[in-house]
Each structure stands twice: as C-alpha cells, then as structure tokens.
C-alpha cells in the first residue's frame, strides 16, 4: 500500500472542558478515500476537526506527511496541503464565486489563473455564475464552490464534512461523483457522511465511530457487508 499521509494516534480531546474523542486512531494513505460513519453524536465531525487544529487535544498525536501537526494553527495546516470543507457556512456569501475561489488560494503567492481555469473546467456550472455572490447559489452549487475553493491549493488531502447534507438526491449523486473525480486526481479524501451506504460504496476504507471511540475499521466493501454494522448504523 502507498505511503501514509495522515495519522491520528490515540487522540483524546474536545471543544471545552469535556472530552468528545477518546483514544481515537485513524489513518489516511496517499490517494485514498476514507469515510467516517456512525450514529449522531459519535464524534465524526469532531474527529475531522481535530486534524484541523479546532480542538483542544489532551492526548495523542496527529502527524501529516511525517510532521507533527497536533498543535498547529489552521492556517499552518492549510499551508501544509490539507484543505477542509465544513458542513455548513462553507462559502463567503457576499463574495462572488470567483472571489471565493481566489480566497481559497490566499496562501499562494504565485499566479493562480491556471488553477482557476481548471476549477471552472471541473465545475462547469460555476463558470456561468462566477460573478454572482456565492450566497445566491443553490445548495449543491454552493457545495461545488466550497470544494472548488479547497482545490485551489492543489491539496494532497481533502477533508469533507458531510458534503451531501441537506441536498436533494439528484445533487447527492452529483456530489459523490465529484468526490470520486477529485480522488482520481490523486487527492486523498477523508469524509464524514450520513449517507453511509453510498459513501462506503465509494470508500477504500471506512471507520465506524461510536461515542467518540473506534468501533469498526475495514474496507468500505467489508463494512457494507458487515451485518452488525448494517444493523447498527446503516438502518438495516
């Protein structure tokens, strides 16, 4: 198997005084799609945020590409090549689509016009709407802006927090196929999804969390086939 990109090792932590994650372990390899599933309140999104310096981590380490990033700030982490797309409020509503993409490349000092062209090629609907404020777009298109914004940095790892939440089934399929296409560019993906069946179908590997702890860990296909997992978290 390819090189390990991200390692979460024995991480314990939370937002305030109370811990939400307990001894959590996770890995993402280069170019892999990893999906985190689990019931509400299992700490899925929290696990993802721990990578991005948004948590008080009281134990354990997080390494990326051989560097300890456990206590790095968000912008230092972005500079290393990890991009994060939050579940909600993930675009700047009064900035135009184009400006949102430019902001995605804020840490870059070089010419970004090639990247912009590539994003518009990747998300054709955005090209037409490039001059509109992102807040006026539909939910699915806003999700595209959010992903496009993250891709402006040519990240090696993309964190997606429930990218299909609140979208219609039509858009859901579209987003999943976009995720697949992004992965085909060689970008590793760590994704939290409610829509577990579809997500695991796409995933190389998956983690099932419960109450902030690892519960199961296997390939996406095996997890889908696992009856216990299916009964507990996938709604039969």
């Amino acid at each position: 198997m390819s090189d390990v990109l991200l390692t979460i090792e024995n991480v314990t932590g939370g937002y305030g005084e109370a811990d939400i994650l307990f001894d959590l372990n996770m890995k993402v390899h280069d170019g892999e799609v990893v999906v985190i599933v689990g019931p509400n309140g299992a700490g899925k999104s929290t696990a993802m945020k721990s990578v991005f310096g948004l948590l008080k981590i009281r134990g354990g380490t997080i390494t990326y590409d051989g560097h300890d990033i456990t206590h790095d700030t968000s912008d230092a982490i972005v500079r290393r090549g990890i991009c994060y797309v939050p579940q909600t409020n993930n675009v700047f509503p009064t900035l135009t689509v184009h400006e949102n993409l430019e902001m995605g490349a804020f840490v870059r000092k070089d010419d970004i016009s090639d990247s912009l062209d590539r994003i518009y090629e990747f998300f054709p609907p955005l090209k037409e709407k490039r001059k509109l404020p992102a807040g006026t777009l539909s939910g699915g298109q806003r999700q595209m802006v959010a992903m496009g914004k993250a891709l402006m940095l040519d990240p090696k790892l993309l964190l997606l927090d429930e990218p299909t939440a609140g979208l219609s089934p039509k858009y859901m399929d579209q987003i999943f196929s976009i995720v697949k296409q992004i992965n085909e560019l060689g970008i590793g993906i760590l994704m939290v999804e409610q829509n577990a069946k579809q997500a695991l179908g796409l995933a190389d590997r998956g983690y099932v969390l419960a109450s902030g702890k690892n519960r199961y860990e296997d390939t996406g296909a095996n997890l889908l086939a696992n009856r216990e997992v299916a009964e507990m978290f996938l709604g039969g």
């Binding site: 912008d75 939050p86 409020n89 900035l95 995605g104 840490v107 940095l153």
Partner: peptide, 13 residues
Amino acid sequence: ADNAELARLTGIN
C-alpha cells in the same frame, strides 16, 4: 467580515 472562522480555515491570515 463574512465569516471569520471560515476565513481562518481557508488559510487567510
């Protein structure tokens, strides 16, 4: 001004 938290996550200084 739109969203300070998202700005930080985007890497804006």
